[in-house]
Design a binder for these strands. Sequence first.
DNA 1: CTAGACTGTCCCATATCGCGATACTAACGT
DNA 2: ACGTTAGTATCGCGATATGGGACAGTCTAG
Lengths: 233, 233
Amino acid sequence: MGQSSGIGVLDKVVAVLKAASAAPTALTDLCDTTGLPRATAHRLAVGLETHGLLQRDGQGRWRPGPLLAALAAHAPDPLVAAAADVLPQLRDRTGESVQLYRADGMTRVCIAVAEPPAGLRDTVPLGARISMGAGSGAKVLTAWADPATQRAVLAGAVFTPQVLAQVRRRGWAQSLAEREPGVASVSAPVRDRAGNVVAAISVSGPTDRIGRRPGDRWAGDLLQAAEALTARL
Amino acid sequence: MGQSSGIGVLDKVVAVLKAASAAPTALTDLCDTTGLPRATAHRLAVGLETHGLLQRDGQGRWRPGPLLAALAAHAPDPLVAAAADVLPQLRDRTGESVQLYRADGMTRVCIAVAEPPAGLRDTVPLGARISMGAGSGAKVLTAWADPATQRAVLAGAVFTPQVLAQVRRRGWAQSLAEREPGVASVSAPVRDRAGNVVAAISVSGPTDRIGRRPGDRWAGDLLQAAEALTARL
DNA sequence: CTAGACTGTCCCATATCGCGATACTAACGT
DNA sequence: ACGTTAGTATCGCGATATGGGACAGTCTAG
């Protein structure tokens, strides 16, 4: 490698993959984006194509290929990975169950949990798909959903547009015995680096222990945990 | 490259990616799987790691990385790509609307459509999320769903376990005015290469034109189209 | 506690392999 | 027919990836 001057094939391959994944890319665009000479870019792209990492559309432009999808299928969800760090911390701080929900259509899916080791506690199974019409997590996800989904959810929800407006203003939501009798919860939005709300993080437990205003106690911790998640995306 | 004898870096990179994506892989396993010398495998894996295509878990084993997920996010769904070829053919043969549905939790999503250009026709919007409780497509997806989902769907469905058993026996399903008044449809399961049912392909149209036994007319064409889809995955 | 057998990491002379200027071909638009 | 753009094939040079081997931690067994 002489003096560690030039860039290696690997860097070029990654550059080509990135370029082709950003948008369907013709050879010339590929060269512009990557700064590679035409012959080089062509050779790499054709190589990637034969391996199935790229494929060509009708106009001969390169797009991500089927193998890429197959490889990423087993890829870990960065949000879940971050949750493995953050959720237990929040559980230890609050002593209550903590969940992470992601919106999926008009339902939400529990993608991570952390529960106290013993005693009376609220359990949401990992992977459970539950209603978007009730609960603090549902309010948060709906409050920042696109308008069409919002309308559809509100049609069958226990909360109103006014409640959602308040959630957006406050930055968190709470609920008492909405989703489950005897259970209260607080939730905060989790944002990606770009600021989009990608999930809701919740603390939930028996009303007797949590009290009727769980937000007063835990909204701060919750928002902090949400920021910690964002930082690790 | 002399006489095109040896394998190039690109091949090695792909081999490493495949190995690490199949399962969390330590260096030694990586060498066994790929046949590469330790130093080479190590250098490539570390390179891929710095680029974010791979990452390491707590035990130092390599797993697919965040960049891989990001690249594949824009990757085309192979099923949708195949549908772009197959669905119009089936529409032309039948003269009716054709849809492709994928199961998603307790609902189904329309991931591809092909409709006759004019006249009375059934329209399902692309991306529409519709019920799993009624319609021939719902029967097919439920018939081959996992037992837990099956039970959950049947609780709110218009069809019975006996109907599903018949669907599995026949290999296709039909329905009359279940999902939508005046609309009849036939559906067949679409399998991946491994034989798992990954989607349902449907023909639907007005009962007046389609008749009360749409399966008699189109089950054959439908099964053929399903096979064509499988072949292109 | 030590020997032994593992791991993952780093180094460096070597020849292999990728490089890219150049030339060729195809498909346009004028 | 001509120029201009696109993608593709060629080929000798030399930069670059290679992999044997050394090194350093880590675990197991005796």
